[in-house]
Structure formats: structure tokens, C-alpha cells
Design a protein around this nucleic acid. Structure first.
Lengths: 206, 206
DNA sequence: ACTTTATTTGACCAAGCGGTCAAAGCAACG
DNA sequence: CGTTGCTTTGACCGCTTGGTCAAATAAAGT
């Protein structure tokens, strides 16, 4: 039944997904139209619907493809590695992903902003489980005095916020800095933040 | 000509703006419909258009009202105050704003995500000028050794990212934490981050 | 060449969109 | 009470939307 897709199918499906990513990541699901996507993909609207049964199907395909790779960096966080290096490496990988896949970042941001109607379940199950697992590792490190005492969940949130901000708020960052590359200097700053936050204080803070 | 608005006008305009905030902040401009806003405001669509000439006008009114208060905390950052306290106070105020006005935060996020078509000019002029001014203050503090050496722009971005994240990604934060209040613990964590990042290192970090 | 299958499209549809308008309802005030 | 101006609405309009379909076209296999 499901044979290997022809070259034309591969090319057109890829073109549609890329075009859908462009459009959905900018306007959100409801704000995007099939005509926009079709034009961006260089296809007619009926032809587009020959490859995907509906607007929803394109969006779903994109979200699924996204979630596959999106959680990878966190999955790699290793409880047996060096605490500070593991966390900083996670932050760096997350920043790299934001730089290399800004459209995916904005697609995700749009979906969450709109109440995550299509992935709420995944967030509550898969994502929560993953984060809880890694949060426990971080908590153990903190308890062992290997890093500063920080709330693991908030630490993870802060990494998400600090890295995705450059992709999601790209326009603002560029407008304020006047730079072409919104990520310029972000890596060094993120390193400084993470190292400061994670370094245990010698004395006692109040 | 422009007399004092009647009580009905005040009530209905307020209801429309609140409804518009609800809808626009969730679906973005293009994804929102007049019918949605009208229903949320408890008015008929023609009646809504009796108070605002167009969908665009509602959106613009909301953005203007937003920008008025949005930049206030940064404006208050005082170059003559205590460096660490000034910056931490700014971060705290920003977090409070995100907690008290999450819809406004999401409205802004939506606008930026969609390329800021309606406020790009303001970002490039007013916001840039304000940020540049405050960045210089921070740079002076750093040069004087009163705070750690940090890129002022990235420091400001980090405060925006860390505070707005809880409002904009509310659904995700709640899903992962399982808590009702997405801001629980955020204040303490933000304090820790800011204090760590701003405290000058005694040794030299190559 | 011919048949089979995959691909593409123009024409079309019902529903939803932002917005208009004339008329009806309503409040205030003399 | 009557009239004047504010408020509300049902009906409507032209356009866009997501999606369908039958027919045309292009590949591929024989």
C-alpha cells in the first residue's frame, strides 16, 4: 500500500512543508491561508491539497517533525557528566538550535501562545516526564553541592527563554541593536549567565 | 466636538478593548475575527463597529495603550541609584508586569512574532533610543567595576526573556510544572540569576 | 505505441470574513 | 409628551477562506 514516494512527491511534500513553516511560523495557524502556502511552495492550491488532505494536516506534520528534534538536546543531558559542563552544553545546543532553526522556534512559540491546542497533551505527558527526569538530576547535583542551589524547573525555563528569545523576538532584537545578526554576542553572554548562576557561592546568601 | 463620552460609551469601549485583548493576544491580528471580539464583548458586530471604525482600529488602540505602560519600568532605571539594586528592581518590576498583564505580554509577543508590522518603526526609534540610553548607564557601571562585565544589551534582553516567558509560555510552564500559578518561585529564581550575573568576579575569567 | 498511473489545474462551492446601511429602539431633556 | 440625538440591530454586500471535483496533462511501465 504505502509504496516509496516518487521523486516528485518527495520534492513537493518538502516544498509544502518548508512553505508551511514559513507561513505558519509568521502568522500562526488561524492567520495563515492555504493560498499563501501554495504560492510560497510554487504550487496551485488544489495541487497542494493533493499532497496534504488539509491545512491542519500540514500544520500537524510540521509540529510532529519539530517535536522530534526539539527535545533532543535536553534528552542528551547526562547525569553522569560534569554538572556545570552538562548544563552549559545543553544551553549552548539550545542556542544553536534557535539560530539554525528560527522558523521552527517561532512555529512552536506561536502554538504555545495560542494555547497549544494541538500539543497540550504532549506537553503534559512526554515533555513533563522528560523535564521532571532531568530536573531530578539537576536537583541531585545541587544537593551534592556540585552546582548552586537553584530550582531545576526554573533553570530549564531560563535556558528556554534565553535561547528562544533571539529567534522569537528576532525583529525586536534587530531593531534595538541595529545589527544584522541578532545572535551576535549571545553565546558569550549565555555562557556568562549560566556559569554565574551555577557556580556555588562560597559564603551563605542571607 | 469631542465631548466627554457617555457612561455607555465608556463601558462599551472598555468592554471592546478587553475583549480585543483577549482575542488578539491569543490568535494574533490575522487569526482574530470581529465576531469573536463582538461575542466576547457581549455586543453585536455592527454595534462593535459603531465604537471602533475597524478591526485595525481596535488593535492599534490596544498596542498604543500597551506601549505606554510597557516601557515605564525601563525608563525608571536610574543611573544615580545603586547599580545592582537598580537592575534587580527593574527585573522585578518587569516580572510583576508579566504576572499582572499576561494578555498584554502575549499581545506584544504576537505582534513581534508576526514581524511587528505595526510597531517596527517605534522599535527602531523610541525603543532603541531608550535601550541605548540605559545600556550606556549599565556599561558605565561595569566599567567602574560596580557590576560584572556584561554586554548591556544582552542583559536587558535576558530580563525581557526571563520575565515575559512566564506569561507568553504560560501553557507550557503550567503543563510542565503541573502548578496552577506559573509564576510560583519565579521571583526568587530571577533574583538569584540577576544577583549572580551582576556580581563582579574577584578573580579573572580569562 | 499504448495503457496505466501519478500529477496538475480551472471552475466551482458553502461558509466565514470585514464592513455598510437604513431603520428601529432608546434615553435625555425641554 | 414630543423631539432630538445616542445606541442597537437585521439584512445585506463583495471578498476570501478551506476544500471539492471532473477533466486535462504528464510520467512510467509494457
Amino acid at each position: 500500500m504505502s509504496k516509496t514516494p516518487t521523486r516528485i512527491q518527495q520534492r513537493n511534500r518538502a516544498a509544502i512543508l518548508s512553505a508551511g513553516l514559513d507561513v505558519f511560523s509568521q502568522y500562526g495557524f488561524r492567520g495563515s491561508t492555504l493560498d499563501q502556502i501554495a504560492e510560497a511552495a510554487g504550487l496551485s492550491k488544489p495541487n497542494l491539497l493533493y499532497y496534504f488532505p488539509s491545512k491542519e494536516a500540514i500544520h500537524t506534520a510540521l509540529l510532529e517533525r519539530l517535536l522530534e528534534t526539539w527535545l533532543d538536546p535536553l534528552k542528551s543531558l547526562d547525569g553522569d557528566g560534569d554538572p556545570v559542563e552538562e548544563i552549559m552544553n545543553y544551553a549552548r545546543r539550545k542556542l544553536t538550535m534557535s539560530r539554525e532553526y528560527p522558523r521552527e522556534s517561532r512555529l512552536f512559540a506561536n502554538e504555545i501562545l495560542q494555547g497549544a491546542p494541538r500539543i497540550a497533551e504532549i506537553l503534559r505527558t512526554d515533555l513533563k516526564a522528560l523535564v521532571d527526569e532531568k530536573a531530578q538530576i539537576i536537583r541531585d547535583w545541587a544537593d551534592a553541592g556540585k552546582i548552586a542551589t537553584v530550582d531545576p524547573h526554573h533553570l530549564i525555563f531560563s535556558i528556554w527563554a534565553l535561547t528562544q528569545h533571539y529567534a522569537d523576538f528576532d525583529v525586536q532584537v534587530r531593531a534595538v541593536r541595529g545589527t544584522d545578526d541578532p545572535f551576535a554576542g549571545a553565546g558569550a553572554f549565555l555562557d556568562h549567565v549560566m556559569r554565574s548562576v551555577l557556580t556555588p557561592v562560597s559564603g551563605n546568601t542571607s
